[in-house]
Nucleic acid binder design. Structure first.
Lengths: 204, 204, 204, 204
DNA sequence: CATGAATGAGGATTCATTCAT
DNA sequence: AATGAATGAATCCTCATTCAT
């Protein structure tokens, strides 16, 4: 075989370097876009040489995968409060509102990242897979929590997916269009009641 | 100053060339993607010289804008039956189902185009604007039809936007994930009743 | 398909450009070697841009093939007097000597080219094929001339191949080692008489 | 000045490392070729660090020299039976046949090595020198044996060189072209009788 | 108007060699 | 002495755009 293997860094310094490359790439991809960022810029921003980048990553797309992985990891972290809390009949509306607020916040805070990485997912199947995996995991977790809260499984997953679409739409309205606060607030109220309604239909 | 002026073709032959370039680009962008298609290929597929392309378009991105314009024009054509039909209390569920079917059909038939152009819209604001404009126009038309059918305007537009998100989600489920027919059919039923419900809340 | 096809130049200027690239490459490959010559140097020496090189050739190796083709064409030209002359019992020794002199001359004059391209043939099958083809053609032509001169076909081709080896060795002695003139002259005499003997064994 | 000094290993461990590097390189150069083998691969295959390679060798080409040295050493070993045996008038044809068989065998067994190293010799004078030295030594040894067997020195060396060319040609026919067994066998017979004839001419 | 040859900057990747640890 | 991480120059090739004809 060849010796051109990818180094899996174990030592502190190596891990730091790998992380620095990912972080620098993350920022550059958000700022300039993946296609307009070249490997020399990544290396410079990460404070390493161009050559070393290829010790840690197969190629530029490999860096992208890690960057998207990081983006999704951060998404998960932002949603952790939801996943850790328990859902019951009483707090469902509150939980939904919190979920919506978190979704909007994460979309808004990282609008550039969101746009860039979602676009790349559409253009590239390897990236798409990462997003699909995240989405599936999230919906399954919510599904289990709802079942535990007494919501019946009958078509619950299908309902959840539609709820997800409602929330995504809400997020897009925030970052894509310049709606005024009243409109957004009204849409949010409608979204919450629609979602509550959708879930209640699966109630005993 | 004026050397870079773009010709606005008036003569038949010129218009045909411009159209040929757009059509050829449309096909190539769907087949290979925008970034993997070069201008030499476009010219060749359109049966013109590479130089002439720059008489009709400022640059490659300018071609893309026209191609997306064409894509949206075709979308509009597909939805024309809906826009031409009248909506009333009695046929609302039927109209919604038809709208959903058309949405799914247009997404599915042009999955490649949809993915490619949506991605490019996320990466490029000029393209995003075209999509936003289409979406706004469509929702406004529906809005007016609903008002004419007796649906109250109170928050109707906000409701409509949420309905749009539900339908988009349904389409994504068709093209992104390999759901089975039963799941898709169930989601569609849920979507229809949810949308009907959302609109009925705005009923007198 | 793609538009990245290789241009087959028909117009004078294009043919000149293609030829200039091949000639410049020929010289550079002889002077610095194939691996130490980069495409920018080739373009510069040919008086063209780097990009245009790839309009006429698929890649660097494609240039090499043409260069070796040119080398072999020049070899053929040098041997043409032999191929055009007739062989008979009476002049066989003279023809052999002439052939040897031509071989030595062509090896000596283009020692750098010979070394470089023979080496690349050993390293690369596409190039090897060009040389093999030349060698086969040459031997077959000689074979037919000998048959016409009354030499029997029985094992004649095998004999010819051995004669070829003798001449090659003679050439190598000229370019590889610093032999003195007497030695070389003696070797030549031995070679001639050996070859004559080898061919005579196939005489009626 | 002295920082670049190459260690001449005296201790057992050092010698083993040096040898491991040469052996690993030998195999890799045969398998992948010199240009496609990088120093990291060599170090890995030899079980040493990349840095240590530069303690034992000036640079990559220095390794190549040693590898070719090893190749030639192995060649010599294969021919040792010939060099150890005595030649006389009675067994000359047998010895020649044995020499031919050994030559063909060594070429065939190490066709990859033979091609690669011969090519590199053509591209690089330092390597060429190693081969020339081997060839000279071999021919001189044979020369002396022949003289001892009563063959006259008159032009004997020149004859020998031509014989060598005949044998080389025979070997090339084996590894370069796909000749059938009958052809090869015939060529071998012709070669033997030609060589015997060439040597007999120098007989008293 | 039209052509398509020509440009040349730009970009991903490799690898012999060095050097801090 | 030994390591292997790090360097960064070098290279092949692409392609949007221009311009001589």
């Amino acid at each position: 075989m060849s010796a051109n293997e990818i180094r899996i860094p174990k030592q502190k310094r190596s891990i730091e370097k790998r992380t620095a490359i990912i972080n620098a790439s993350y920022d550059l991809f958000c700022e300039k876009g993946y296609y307009r960022t070249n490997t020399a810029e990544i290396a410079k921003a990460a404070g390493v040489s161009t050559g070393i980048v290829y010790s840690y990553f197969h190629d530029k797309k490999d860096i992208l995968k890690e960057v998207v992985g990081l983006y999704i990891f951060r998404l998960e972290e932002q949603f952790r409060p939801i996943f850790c809390s328990t859902i019951d009949r009483g707090n469902i509306a509150v939980v939904i509102e919190k979920f919506i607020d978190l979704s909007i916040a994460s979309h808004t805070m990282n609008a550039a990242a969101h746009n860039e990485f979602l676009a790349l997912a559409l253009l590239n199947n390897d990236i798409q897979v990462l997003f699909n995996h995240f989405e599936s995991k999230m919906l399954e977790t919510l599904y289990e929590k709802l079942v535990a809260a007494g919501y019946l499984g009958d078509l619950l997953l299908e309902r959840l997916r539609i709820c997800y679409g409602i929330i995504e739409q809400l997020c897009h309205e925030h970052i894509r269009y310049k709606r005024n606060d009243v409109e957004l607030s009204n849409m949010k109220s409608i979204a919450i009641s629609t979602i509550v309604g959708l879930l209640d239909m699966a109630m005993g």
